[in-house]
Simulated scan of single mutants.
Amino acid sequence: MTQQPDGNQIHPEQQEMPLIEHLLELRNRLLKMVLAVVICFAAIYPFANELYLWLSQPIRELLPVGQSMIATDVTSPFFAPLKLALVLSVFAAIPVILYQLWSFIAPGLYAHEKRLAFPLLFTSVILFYAGAAFAYYVVFPLVFGFFTAIGPEGIVELPDINSYLNFVLKMFFAFGVAFEIPIATVLLILTGATTPDDLAAKRPYVVVGCFIIGMLLTPPDIISQTLLAVPMWILFEFGILFGRLARREVASEDSEDFPGE
């Protein structure tokens, strides 16, 4: 502990750090993030082929008997599983990455901000994984079932492994980000950029916006667009609800800290 000229003590975390120390700490945090990804990659890569088979199961189950996926590029059988392992390593390391970011910014936050920031970070990880799981277990079977059933008769479907991987990774990212809507809504409310009542009043525009985003981020079929738009709208409503609760908690803490105001 140190003391100000008026005798008040300052916690060590509240003392200003020199710029060089901030940069060194940021470098150490980044190195730990990279190390986490490398460790996850080393653990995942030996199972890359099996993981690709698991990832491609939703479409392989719908292919006619005797048909399978193909590789139109000579290097695809090697690079497609490698790319999948690398992306999964980043996904698996997200908790460590967010924890390092949290550890870097936490000393500059007030106590009530820390109490809210950590749950928001933790919830954001869970929601991102939930969005990816929703895409795999709900969206993929319906979307691939639609695509394989709507094709002209006599056309043999032989999906390319690299094109399929790019498609599903895009869907994972789209649904993972879309499921972060409650976090974004709560942050907008807590920062004072808007209020729950204002967001509720703009609900019709939000619903239209959800379907527009669903149209832009998903294939051109009504099934996948609806499966993205409807959860986005529901999550927006949850964001308003949790935003009201979080704002009440912040207001009550402020009144306790400054009872005379």
Results as ranks from 00 to 15, higher is better:
A133L: 14
D73M: 06
F134G: 04
V87Q: 06
L86D: 02
L169C: 07
W102F: 02
I161S: 06
T148F: 09
P95D: 12
V143D: 11
F167D: 10
L84M: 00
P152G: 06
V125Q: 15
L88N: 12
V143S: 13
P81F: 00
I105P: 01
F91P: 07
I150D: 12
V65F: 11
L63R: 03
A93T: 00
N162W: 15
Y164G: 01
P152Q: 10
L169S: 04
P81E: 01
W102C: 05
P77L: 03
E157T: 15
S76G: 09
S103D: 14
E157Q: 15
H112W: 11
A149M: 10
F175T: 00
A178L: 02
A149L: 11
S76E: 11
F146W: 08
G145F: 13
A135Y: 12
F147W: 10
L86Y: 05
S124D: 01
M69K: 03
N162S: 14
S163D: 15
A111N: 15
G108T: 12
E153M: 06
F167W: 05
P119A: 02
F79P: 08
P95N: 10
A71C: 12
Y164W: 08
G66E: 09
L88W: 13
L84S: 00
V90N: 06
P64H: 01
G66V: 03
L101I: 07
A85L: 02
A133E: 12
F167K: 04
A93M: 06
K83M: 09
L158Y: 07
Y99K: 01
Y110G: 09
M69S: 01
V74H: 07
Y110L: 07
L169M: 04
Y99N: 12
F91T: 08
A93K: 00
A130Y: 02
Y164V: 11
A130H: 00
T72H: 10
S103M: 14
S124E: 04
A85H: 07
Y164P: 08
F78S: 02
V87W: 08
F104Y: 10
F175E: 00
A71N: 07
F118M: 13
Y137S: 10
A135N: 14
Y99V: 06
A133C: 13
A135G: 07
P95T: 04
G151Q: 11
A71Q: 11
